[in-house]
Design a protein around this nucleic acid. Structure first.
Lengths: 219, 219
DNA sequence: AAATATATTTAGACTTATCTAAAAGTTAAT
DNA sequence: ATTAACTTTTAGATAAGTCTAAATATATTT
């Protein structure tokens, strides 16, 4: 059994490893987990001793197979609980994160599988992220960052890089939702802002926003 | 906000206060919470400093109004989650306690009320215990301990004093369930064992078992 | 009422997870 | 190739919650 803190580190490192494809260093983790670099070093040593990750002083970390397995279990729980909160308790997608952060640490050999079955085996969470199955298998949809899409190309909004509630509320306000069709109308070279069109309206989004949107290309 | 440990102490003290009507002393709490008397003393001091209970050295404790309010909130959460586990995830009544022990500590201003509404405002948990409402109000059914029922009297099984899984499994085995009609056929003076009859069968139960059964008298 | 048994509290230690401040290492820039 | 800037680690402290062992109260016998 692992502590909540340990589970949070593993989950965070896993996500960083897969979102940014760089080396995962101390400050990156400290930022994400909202703690100090010194605390990260301590925990990294502990997880390394447990062989959940490999660690070379000053050189960053990498999850072992075991560490990745545990991370995926926590992520599975998080995403299934998020689905539950949205589909059964009528929460909106920008309200569920903090509650799921707690629920993901409930310990039971059967609970999450029973919940999954009750929810009829959903494949994606409310933010479009794939839910790992019982064995840790996870569907990887091929998506492209909106920043890399050329003028005239079309796609659907598949998932988000950053699912913070501030960003989700922004999408609500701009009437952008998962699965929406998006077409790039124009790219402004001066500030890299992007003029896009959905089925219902047009709008201009900043480079920062575009970087958070993963698009499944339509051809 | 209170820690899990604090919430557990308050909940335990509340239940002890209402089940046994005696003074709540250190060892009683230590037993229930599976810890040492010295740890209980430490925590009691802390809760007393926070004015959640009154405490006179060597003389036991009593919850304040505030302490009771918090205890009832935790109990409310515990019982609603138990109901969820049994009714939605198909757990049986002897499997839900440990999971509910964890779920009861999830922090959110809205979660438990939304869950309650989703469950359509159940009034009792799977063990027959009443679920406090949003304001901490709790239905107190008038019941009598089976030990105090005379030969020939009839009643229905309302709730249990001890809902440990060992005891629940015993009831399963003996085919006794909540709401079952029970009639006392004979009381054996030698060991106080009780011969009872349900709608479907007869059996003999020990004094210890009888003490755990709360009966609603029928007349 | 003294002696014994039992219950409770205190003192001091330990673990987990965190922090600040200082030291050490790495990277980038001149 | 030094210096400066930044990152990471170490050292030492702190807080919560627990424990053991010893000390102190209270309760029960005789």
């Amino acid at each position: 059994m692992f502590s909540q803190a340990e589970e949070n580190y593993l989950k965070t490192i896993y996500t960083l490893q897969n979102r940014r494809k760089t080396v995962i260093n101390t400050n990156l983790i400290a930022d994400k987990i909202n703690t100090k670099a010194s605390s990260v070093t301590d925990m990294i040593k502990k997880l390394s001793a447990k062989e959940l990750l490999t660690y070379k002083k000053y050189k960053g970390v990498q999850l072992t197979e075991m560490g990745e397995k545990i991370a995926l279990k926590v992520i599975r729980k998080h995403r299934l609980w998020e689905h539950f909160l949205v589909k059964k308790l009528n929460y909106s997608w920008d309200e569920v994160h903090d509650i799921a952060e707690q629920l993901e640490h409930i310990k039971s050999d059967t609970l999450i599988d029973n919940l999954e079955s009750y929810l009829q085996f959903p494949k994606f969470d409310p933010h479009g992220d794939p839910i790992p199955d019982k064995d840790g298998k996870i569907i990887l949809t091929k998506t492209v960052n909106l920043l890399n899409i050329k003028v005239g190309q079309k796609g659907t909004l598949d998932s988000l890089k950053d699912s913070s509630d501030v960003f989700l509320k922004y999408l609500n306000k701009k009437r952008l939702a998962l699965r929406d069709q998006i077409k790039v109308i124009d790219i402004e070279p001066f500030d890299n802002s992007i003029h896009i069109e959905t089925k219902t309206h047009q709008l201009v989004i900043s480079k920062k926003v575009a970087d958070n949107l993963n698009i499944k290309i339509l051809r």
